[in-house]
Design a protein around this nucleic acid. Structure first.
Lengths: 143, 143
DNA sequence: CTCACAGTTTAGAATCATTCTAATTCGTTG
DNA sequence: CAACGAATTAGAATGATTCTAAACTGTGAG
């Protein structure tokens, strides 16, 4: 009876461990954000969309923290930043090699598996420069 | 002697004609901006860089007009907008089929001829969506 | 278990690119 | 050259993101 309300939090030990491995102190807000982000498969979020989503779960995390966290996760390799829209930044929980469809009107990003796409003929960069990564954005529109 | 100082203005009739063809009234500022933009081969500018550049030629054009003009030129097919940086928008005078190297640290864009690059394996977009264009950004860094 | 401190969070101000507004100016056509 | 709609502009407004300075919280030592 004593522990009747002690449900297994989705604030799981796994998330905590993952943060620690990434060299990030598992604070309440980081654990919360990581939970929302990495719980269900690949996701694309915006600082604001994530902020709203977390707010809806009842937890309070400031927008500043959401921004900080998104950047820290990105530096730690837990997220990848996707630049497709001049208006806002997207973050992708899929850090593997892949590309995107982007529906501009709706701000909707859709993954394209990395294996399916191949970019050939990329010239050697000008002297002194080396390739960091190749991003492909397939801009699509509703028919 | 009379016309000794009458150099052929780069504010040429060609520029004026080009604007008219594009359905744009050839105002002083549009002619000036078009002159700077389309005078010497392919160029990549940001609103601010173009504004500064024009200011240095002694002509005064407001930043608002530069923004308006860049968008109008883009709609008219005279420019192409390039999205590679979350911080600012680039505009490319090369509207043909081609891609870019991007040196993030320096905000430097370099054209890659369209013929040299080939993207294969782009899957059919989800139902209801059709491909508008495929953008490739080769992110490079200084060694 | 408690303390202390570096690391975090946060509200709100600040920044920066871009857009908007409302008033003035300019191109064009009659 | 008058008139009218289009274009320009200064400055305010906006929106995303970053910064600041103060309050708070993990964590490791004792």
């Amino acid at each position: 009876m004593a522990k009747a309300l002690r449900e297994p939090r989705n604030t799981s030990a796994q998330t905590t461990a993952r943060l620690r491995e990434a060299g990030l102190r598992p604070t309440r807000q980081r654990v919360e954000l990581a939970g929302v982000l990495f719980q269900n498969g690949d996701r694309h979020v915006t600082a604001e969309s994530l902020h709203d989503e977390v707010a809806n779960t009842g937890v309070k995390v400031s927008l500043a923290t959401v921004y900080n966290t998104l950047h820290q996760f990105t530096e730690a390799g837990l997220l990848r930043q996707v630049i497709v829209d001049a208006a806002r930044s997207y973050f992708d929980t899929n850090t593997g090699d892949h590309q995107h469809f982007f529906v501009e009107k709706e701000g909707l990003l859709i993954d394209i598996p990395g294996e399916s796409i191949a970019v050939a003929g990329v010239p050697t960069p000008p002297a002194g420069l080396s390739v960091d990564r190749v991003d492909v954005v397939v801009r699509v529109r509703r028919n």
